[in-house]
C-alpha cells in the first residue's frame, strides 16, 4: 500500500484506504466515487491532483489527495 501522491503521472491503481475518520471528508470522497476498491488513473499532480475515474475526470487538492492510499 502506498500514498496516491507517490504514483507517477499516467499510471493506474486501486484505492485501498482513506486515511481519515472525518465523516465530512469521507462524504466528499465518496460523493465523487473515491471509495476503496475503485480503480483510478493519476493524470497529473499539479497544480492540483487530477484523476480519471471511470469516464470522468476528478480534481482534488493535495490535502485531500494525501489521504488516499492505493495498491
Amino acid at each position: 500500500m502506498l500514498p496516491l501522491l507517490k504514483i507517477p503521472d499516467g499510471s493506474g491503481a486501486i484505492i485501498a484506504e482513506l486515511a481519515t475518520r472525518d465523516h465530512k471528508v469521507i462524504r466528499k470522497m465518496s460523493s465523487l466515487g473515491i471509495v476503496p476498491g475503485v480503480s483510478v488513473t493519476v493524470l497529473r499532480k499539479s497544480p492540483a491532483v487530477l484523476l480519471q475515474c471511470g469516464h470522468t475526470k476528478i480534481a482534488l487538492d493535495r490535502s485531500l489527495a494525501s489521504l488516499i492510499y492505493v495498491k
Binding site: 469521507i26 465518496s30 471509495v35 476503496p36 475503485v38 471511470g54 475526470k57
Partner: peptide
C-alpha cells in the same frame, strides 16, 4: 473502517451491475 456504509453501497452497486454494465473504453 472509515466510510463503512458508503463502501458497502458501492459494493452493492457493483454486484447489481455485474454482467449488466460494460464500461467500454475508459482511456483518457
Amino acid at each position: 473502517e472509515a466510510g463503512f456504509f458508503a463502501v458497502w453501497r458501492y459494493r452493492e452497486a457493483e454486484k447489481l451491475l455485474a454482467g449488466v454494465f460494460h464500461s467500454g473504453n475508459e482511456k483518457n
